[in-house]
């Protein structure tokens, strides 16, 4: 079956694409899915360190966005809202995980994390690319995974995805000033961790 609203113009501004998806236009929604799925995947993978769970998170948040779109009041707030859906799903997964098993958040566990393969390049990347991974990057990923989930989310949303303090604050239910403080603490902990690791 073909999608509705063919003749869809991908040069539209995002607000107009979101508005059409709100009206049930599948082609417009598909455009949003394609635009955001990899960004959300990178966030979810760095939060969860598990491909399957990250893909589930991407899928669930985009489906939740399809269902919730008609209620979104401001079309220009779509990206922040979608990141909010995805971040909260990641935090839910981690909460469930920690209630099932012991959660590794202790910086002293850095070595065991290395052994557990957290530093490994994701499966499927070619050796040449793997070689590009600098020691610094590896250390960063390692220490990042020792941060408490909310702090890690805060750091990823800001540094990897460029969200505003206001959007991050709305996601994590803290004030923009609280976001600033959390980021400073995250950076402090990361630099401490990275210096210990070396």
């Amino acid at each position: 079956m073909d999608d509705h609203g063919r003749g869809f113009d991908p040069d539209l501004d995002e607000g107009s694409i979101v508005a059409r998806a709100q009206d049930g236009d599948l082609a417009a929604f598909e455009h949003l899915v394609v635009t955001y799925q990899d960004r959300l995947f990178r966030l979810a993978y760095r939060m969860l360190n598990d491909r399957g769970e990250a893909e589930d998170t991407v899928q669930e948040s985009l489906i939740a966005s399809w269902r919730g779109l008609p209620m979104l009041a401001d079309v220009n707030a779509f990206d922040g809202w979608l990141y909010r859906l995805a971040t909260n799903k990641c935090l839910d997964v981690l909460r469930k995980r920690s209630s099932h098993a012991e959660n590794i958040t202790d910086p002293d566990n850095v070595c065991s994390l290395t052994e557990a393969g957290a530093i490994r390049a994701p499966a499927g990347s070619d050796p040449a690319h793997e070689a590009e991974w600098s020691a610094q990057q590896a250390g960063l990923i390692l220490v990042l995974n020792t941060l408490p989930p909310v702090q890690r989310a805060c750091w990823l949303l800001r540094e990897m995805h460029g969200l505003t303090y206001a959007d991050i604050g709305a996601t994590l239910k803290i004030s923009p000033a609280g976001v600033r403080g959390m980021l400073a603490r995250a950076r402090h902990q990361i630099t401490e961790g990275m210096s210990q690791w070396r």
Binding site: D38, A121, A123, G124, S125
Partner: peptide, 23 residues
């Protein structure tokens, strides 16, 4: 460097089947 390499990294993309499953 992590931001740039994650962007380039082909294995840090959702499986192509994800789009279809969502649609």
């Amino acid at each position: 460097s992590l931001r740039e390499s994650d962007l380039r990294n082909p294995s840090l993309k959702a499986h192509p089947g994800v789009t279809n499953a969502i649609m």
